[in-house]
Design a protein around this nucleic acid. Sequence first.
DNA 1: ATTCAAAGGAAAAATATTTTCCTTAGCAAT
DNA 2: ATTGCTAAGGAAAATATTTTTCCTTTGAAT
Lengths: 133, 133
Amino acid sequence: MEKSVHYADLLKQKGLKSTPQRMAMLRIMETKGHADIDEIYQEIKKDFVSISLATVYKNINTLLDEGIIQEIKVPQKKSKFEIAKYKHSHFVCERCGEVYDVQRPKKLNIELPEGFEPREASVMVVGVCKRCH
Amino acid sequence: MEKSVHYADLLKQKGLKSTPQRMAMLRIMETKGHADIDEIYQEIKKDFVSISLATVYKNINTLLDEGIIQEIKVPQKKSKFEIAKYKHSHFVCERCGEVYDVQRPKKLNIELPEGFEPREASVMVVGVCKRCH
DNA sequence: ATTCAAAGGAAAAATATTTTCCTTAGCAAT
DNA sequence: ATTGCTAAGGAAAATATTTTTCCTTTGAAT
Ligand SMILES: [Mn+2]
Ligand SMILES: [Mn+2]
Ligand SMILES: [Zn+2]
Ligand SMILES: [Zn+2]
């Protein structure tokens, strides 16, 4: 089963319409891995010359609400968005700014004070990526 | 040595003037632990009725540039700022939004691909805090 | 083919942040 | 203590970002 079909179904399952604009946004995130609002907007304009930036924002929010995508807050830069998938951690390159998926730690040894209940944890590693070395 | 003196010296070391507005901002962050722009602005207005929001932003940026404070990007909410101190991790309560300092993990077992050089890592734990339990 | 709510586009509004420009004040040198 | 220089403050404007409004279009169920 190809991806476009997959996303079309996913959208319908969530009660959302499968529009060309949404499909394009999902494909862009799929392809780029992690993209910020501007990257998505610039990229989608290649196919939808007159798409409104408001549409991009509205769709980002809708897709976030339904848990189809997720936001990643990156130190010192604009938020990136990505298709929601298995849990993982991130590595951001301080040279080029690229964000990479990395396997998350098996066990996180964090000592929480009495009465604090953890639900989940996110790890962001900052460093220099392979290409920038 | 009291804190106000400490901060005054710190500012001067960095070549910054020790102004009452800056000292107040530092005291607010010291007291609150983690505060966002609005909290700082609302709080400082109690002492400096006519302070400009632009001054708050300008000082936040100056203090960030000098590494006197640091920004913490919190999932789903506005950035918080805190006095830079020893390295630590954070816990954010999904009920009340409060951010707490927690001891950072001794060792972070993250497997990075060949060629990726980590410099530092940040950990954010999301859950329910003691007060909200 | 018809229907209708959801979604898109354009523009306006709201919100957030930075910059400008002039005045004020910290502080170093006298 | 006084002076002079410059960083910093305040007010307003400018810019940037995000959301909302309002009307038109379209996906998809019937
Ligand atoms: Mn990812
Ligand atoms: Mn902290
Ligand atoms: Zn890189
Ligand atoms: Zn709480």
